[in-house]
């Protein structure tokens, strides 16, 4: 009887404990955000934690949008200090941040990530154009006779799309709409192909919403298969099915270069040099955003920024390039590095 009372007391204590604990200080940097930046940020965090006296930052992969939402909730130890993003922050998000008192945000670009369209090495390398990608994967495409009219996408094989392509079924494994990779794929590859039809491009001026609906949608009748956020799974499926194509980040191509190969897009292969020089167009910038108010409150913030923006990290031969990050051109790099060392904040999107 006495025992059970003490167990009850312990339980109640455990319930009350966090109320006092949440007010306590935090000595570990908390990072949220993009799953694309996650594999890079974790490497930096680990090196930072092991080589300095500070704790290793904790990184949670929430997606770019989810990360910014958490980041903009307010200032204080219960909110994250840094968020990673595989796209630039939006004006709406800056406004949301400001509403919660998060006004001084430091923007740091870490480099680029290419989006590759790849297949198994057992099959031939495909040479695609953005226009072909759009014609193969959009739900509605312009009438083949050239009329300014949209029809339901009738293409079943790549041969249907273009007579130069092989006669195999269109099967593309790619990420779901919640993913930043999917956003970038839709914006860069699909819309890029869509824009090559002049009358579709003209819609943009009249009706931006309709233009986006036509150009950035992906068909849902089978050829595009949502394979989840797990890029490893896509790689495995490509190995099992040499006829299928997969859409994922360049870093996964680097790790699996022995079994899969990237397709040409507009005549350019997704190689390190081609993405870095900007020849391979399906690539996007990667960022992270820092709360200036937390520098000085959370130990190690300044040092972590220095580590992440150091030449040995994201420079031309930095260790993140081994992991598949495409470094910025040196001019751009020095601009962001000085922004980081001066802790200059984002004044607006330009």
């Amino acid at each position: 009887m006495k025992n059970s009372i003490s167990i009850f007391a312990a339980a109640i204590l455990m319930l009350l404990l966090p109320l006092t604990a949440s007010a306590a200080a935090r000595d570990t940097i908390k990072i949220v955000g993009s799953s694309t930046v996650y594999p890079f940020a974790t490497v930096v965090a680990e090196r930072f934690g092991k080589s300095t006296k500070f704790n290793t930052p904790v990184i949670e992969s929430t997606g770019s949008g989810g990360g910014l939402k958490l980041f903009c909730k307010g200032i204080g130890v219960e909110h994250p200090d840094i968020t990673n993003a595989s796209r630039r922050i939006k004006q709406k998000e800056i406004d949301n941040c400001a509403k919660a008192g998060v006004t001084d945000i430091i923007e740091i670009k870490i480099g680029y990530d290419g989006i590759v369209i790849a297949n198994s090495k057992k099959a031939d390398v495909l040479a695609l154009t953005k226009r072909q990608i759009f014609l193969a994967l959009a739900p509605e495409i312009p009438h083949p006779n050239g009329a300014k009219q949209l029809i339901k996408n009738p293409n079943v094989t790549w041969r249907d799309v273009d007579s130069s392509l092989p006669n195999i079924k269109i099967e593309v494994l790619g990420p779901p709409p919640t993913s930043g990779t999917r956003d970038a794929f839709a914006e860069l590859a699909m819309e890029g192909g869509c824009k090559t039809f002049k009358w579709l491009k003209d819609i943009k001026k009249e009706n931006k919403k309709r233009y986006k609906a036509i150009c950035r949608s992906v068909r849902e009748d089978g050829p595009y298969i949502e394979a989840g956020e797990n890029d490893n799974l896509i790689v495995q499926k490509l190995n099992a099915n040499p006829k299928a194509l997969g859409v994922f980040g360049y870093s996964f191509l680097v790790e699996n270069s022995d079994s899969i190969q990237g397709s040409f897009v507009d005549g350019v292969l997704p190689t390190f040099e081609n993405i870095a020089q900007g020849d391979y167009k399906v690539s996007r910038p990667l960022y992270f955003y820092v709360k200036k108010a937390h520098i000085g409150t959370i130990p190690g913030m300044k040092e972590f920024l220095r580590e992440f923006t150091a030449d040995k990290t994201i420079g031309q031969d930095g260790y993140l390039t081994d992991k598949g990050l495409i470094p910025m051109p040196s001019g751009e790099y020095s601009q962001f590095r000085s922004a980081a060392s001066k802790l200059s904040t984002l004044s607006g999107l330009n």
Binding site: A21, T28, Y38, A45, N55, T56, V58, I59
Partner: peptide, 13 residues
Amino acid sequence: AFVVDVPSSPLDS
């Protein structure tokens, strides 16, 4: 989350 340090209390990440 990516947590390298082994937690030392139930309040650590």
